[in-house]
Design a protein around this nucleic acid. Sequence first.
DNA 1: GTTAGCATGTAAGGAGTTACATGATTTT
DNA 2: AAAATCATGTAACTCCTTACATGCTAAC
Lengths: 199, 199
Amino acid sequence: MLDMAILGLLAETPLHGYELRKRVVSLLGGFRALSYGSLYPALRRMREQGWITVQEPVGTSAALPADAPALTGKRGKVVYALTADGKEHFQELLGEAGPEAWEDERFDVRFAFFAQTDAELRLHILEGRRRRVEQRRDGLRAALARTRQRVDHYTLELQQHGLDSVDREVRWLSELIDSERVGQQHDTSRTTPTGGHSS
Amino acid sequence: MLDMAILGLLAETPLHGYELRKRVVSLLGGFRALSYGSLYPALRRMREQGWITVQEPVGTSAALPADAPALTGKRGKVVYALTADGKEHFQELLGEAGPEAWEDERFDVRFAFFAQTDAELRLHILEGRRRRVEQRRDGLRAALARTRQRVDHYTLELQQHGLDSVDREVRWLSELIDSERVGQQHDTSRTTPTGGHSS
DNA sequence: GTTAGCATGTAAGGAGTTACATGATTTT
DNA sequence: AAAATCATGTAACTCCTTACATGCTAAC
């Protein structure tokens, strides 16, 4: 999840950790908070894997050996950039078609990078996501039908609001799927429709 | 989170683990899945804390010492019930007024047991939750105003859908707050309005 | 009589958080 | 020159999941 967000953002432009964190949060609409305690270890791990590199830290003139962290002395901004391996790995992640792609935690991140995703795969993921949400909707409907009258006002209100939310999400996904299909009709190739859908 | 859900459900009626799990999931509308690997250790911990007890396991006739788990021999359903300490602890949890109460993970559970919550506290939590969601909405609006035109179709669509969702939640909360205030007008005492709000 | 679903649990590990520790830069 | 905010990182911990291991019970 976090890996994909980081790689995707660094694919646009190199960034330092602090800025990267703000962009990850903003990318997902502020729903997940993301602390430094999870960001920095992730960056370290990805550096060790060779997916990202550290560019010349601003504020230190000495050339750093790759794994000597600037523990003492003047620290500057540590700017991270994608390596060739990192780009490749990001493309691999974008190409994964497994059913995890439409689970709650992953879908938003995948969707955020849809512009770089194959058109056919986009449709596949949107349809999988819709099935997933429809399934939840049906479960919720059944639960409501079962418990209606037997539970208190607040439980009912909570379940009803939940049902309304998933209903809305299904409609949203259906609209997206329709507009994807229209996009594919007169364009059988797998490039992105860069056009500017107004409203 | 889990503790409150378990205590609240066991406060209604004793249950065995398997059934308890289904009810926790249903209570929250199936948004969180809850695995046995988190349920059973929680039950064990709560038993050690003295909040719950194990009722006569069906299928074993021998009287069990309190901490001898039926590791061998025939296992029956292990039915858990709230102790006096457990009831007290649940009441304590219900009475907590901290700002964690309106964070995402906790709010739903708290809300599910609103019928047992003090009316004043209900209002307090609903208002806190609304402030929290409004704050997110404003952040999202600002992000949208900032990035509009600069980001791709899909990112925009994701942020717009997120904004619509938080907008809906704010309206929902506002309606609940209004109806709570109406309920309090002609009832200054802090008991629950057991009446049947129709529609 | 075998499959499906009910039922209970443990061990290992994933994915994050909070709290801490430190220092640089910008604003007031 | 003090305060705010930018910036980087670690250690300990929380809360949950997956995978495993086991056995009972109803239905086909």
